[in-house]
C-alpha cells in the first residue's frame, strides 16, 4: 500500500524584500527552509504552525503557485520543479487547491457553473459544452449543492456554500492531491463540521491524498494521518497523528497543544498555563541555532550554537530538539 505519491526534497522558498532605503541592499526572507517529507497515496498530512510560519507558502510552493528557490518536488517520479510551463499545466489536473476565504477566492462576475468548469477547460479542452456541464452538475451534487444553483453568482451564497463551490472546483478535474489551505477557518463552527466531513467523505470516495494546512490543531487532529509542525519555515516535528498529539518531542509542539482551547471547563481550568512568552521572531533575521530557543522554556546555551537536526525519536516520528527526551518525560499535555 505504501506507494509514495509525492516527495518534497530540501525545499526552500525565499522572498526578496526591498531594503529599507533606496540604496539599501535587498533583504531575504526565508519563508520555507529546507523542508523534506513524503506523502503516500491516500494519506492526509496536516501542516500546523502559527501565522507567518510559512505553512501556506509551503503548500503553494509544492504546487509551484509560488516558485520554490531551492530543492525538488517529485510527483509520481517526475520532478515538478523541472517541468516546462506546458508540462506543468498538464500535471496540474492531478494537483488542486482549496483556499481559506471561500467568497474572495471566487470570481464575482462568473456564475457557479463557469467557476467550477474553469479548471476543466484547461485540463480537458476536448470536452463539449454539454459534457462539461454534466461534469459540473455531477460534482455539484457530490459536494451537496443543488444543480439548479448552477446559474447563480457567488454573492448569493453563504460562506459554507461558497466553500462547497471552491471544493467542487478543486475536484472537477478528478485530481489525486489537494492542498487544503485553512479550508474551514473562515466558517462558523456548525458549518466547519459539515465541510470537514465533506472533505473526509470525498477523500474516501475519490481516493484523494490531502495536505491539510491549518492553525487549528483540533481540526488537524480530526482529519490527519500524520502531522508536520512548522516553526519559522522549518520542520520542527513530523510524525503519526497519535504520537505527535500524545507524545510530542518538540517543546513548540507541546506549547501549541497546551495553548489550544478545550471545550471542557474542568480540563480547561486544570491544565498548565501556556509556557510560551512573546511572539515568534522575525523570519528576516531568525535566531542562531534553534529558531525556537528565544521562546523555549527549556533552552540552554548550546541551543544558540547549533541547529538541532530533525532526529528520529520513534517509528516515523522525528523532532528537531536536542532535549526531546526531556520534553517527553514531562507529564503529557493531551490525552
Amino acid at each position: 500500500m505504501a506507494e509514495t505519491l509525492l516527495s518534497v526534497e530540501h525545499l526552500s522558498t525565499v522572498f526578496s524584500l526591498r531594503g529599507r532605503s533606496l540604496f539599501a541592499p535587498n533583504v531575504d526572507l526565508k519563508a520555507v527552509s529546507d523542508v523534506s517529507f513524503h506523502l503516500e497515496k491516500g494519506e492526509t498530512l496536516g501542516i500546523v504552525g502559527e501565522s507567518g510560519c510559512g505553512k501556506s507558502t509551503l503548500g503553494r510552493s509544492i504546487l509551484r503557485l509560488i516558485e520554490p528557490t531551492e530543492g525538488r518536488v517529485v510527483w509520481q517520479e517526475r520532478s515538478l520543479t523541472d517541468l516546462s510551463d506546458a508540462e506543468m499545466r498538464k500535471a496540474r489536473r492531478d494537483l488542486s487547491i482549496i483556499f481559506q476565504d471561500p467568497v474572495a477566492s471566487l470570481d464575482p462576475r462568473m456564475n457557479v457553473g463557469q467557476i467550477i468548469a474553469e479548471p476543466l477547460k484547461v485540463a480537458e479542452p476536448a470536452l463539449s459544452r454539454k459534457e462539461r456541464r454534466q461534469r459540473v452538475e455531477k460534482v455539484m451534487e457530490e459536494v451537496g449543492l443543488a444543480p439548479e444553483m448552477i446559474n447563480r453568482y457567488p454573492h448569493e451564497f453563504s460562506g459554507g456554500q461558497a466553500q462547497r463551490i471552491g471544493i467542487a472546483r478543486a475536484i472537477v478535474t478528478e485530481p489525486k492531491l489537494i492542498v487544503c489551505d485553512e479550508p474551514v477557518s473562515a466558517l462558523d463552527v456548525s458549518i466547519q463540521a459539515q465541510i470537514v466531513n465533506l472533505l473526509k467523505a470525498l477523500k474516501e470516495r475519490m481516493g484523494l491524498t490531502l495536505i491539510f494546512i491549518s492553525h487549528d490543531l483540533s481540526v488537524v487532529r480530526l482529519v490527519s494521518d500524520r502531522i508536520l509542525v512548522l516553526y519559522l519555515g522549518r520542520v520542527v516535528e513530523i510524525g503519526p497523528r497519535r504520537e505527535v498529539f500524545t507524545n510530542p518531542g518538540h517543546p513548540y509542539t507541546r506549547a501549541l497543544l497546551a495553548a489550544a482551547p478545550i471545550p471542557d471547563p474542568k480540563i480547561a481550568r486544570s491544565r498548565e498555563k501556556t509556557p510560551l512568552k512573546g511572539d515568534p521572531p522575525s523570519p528576516i533575521d531568525p535566531p542562531s541555532g534553534c529558531a525556537f530557543r528565544t521562546r523555549c522554556p527549556i533552552a540552554r546555551d548550546v541551543c544558540a550554537e547549533e541547529r538541532p537536526p530533525l532526529a528520529e525519536i520513534g517509528a516515523g516520528h522525528r523532532a528537531a530538539c536536542l532535549f526531546w527526551e526531556e520534553v517527553r518525560s514531562d507529564p503529557a499535555v493531551a490525552g
Binding site: G160, V189, S190, Q192, A193, Q194, N197, S218, A334
Partner: peptide
C-alpha cells in the same frame, strides 16, 4: 448540545464530528 458535539477536540482522537445540518 449540537454545538458542543460539532467541535473537534485537540485532546481526543475522533474520526468524525457531528455537524448541525441546514443553515442559520
Amino acid at each position: 448540545a449540537a454545538l458542543i458535539r460539532s467541535i473537534p477536540r485537540v485532546d481526543r482522537d475522533a474520526e468524525a464530528v457531528e455537524p448541525i445540518g441546514g443553515r442559520p
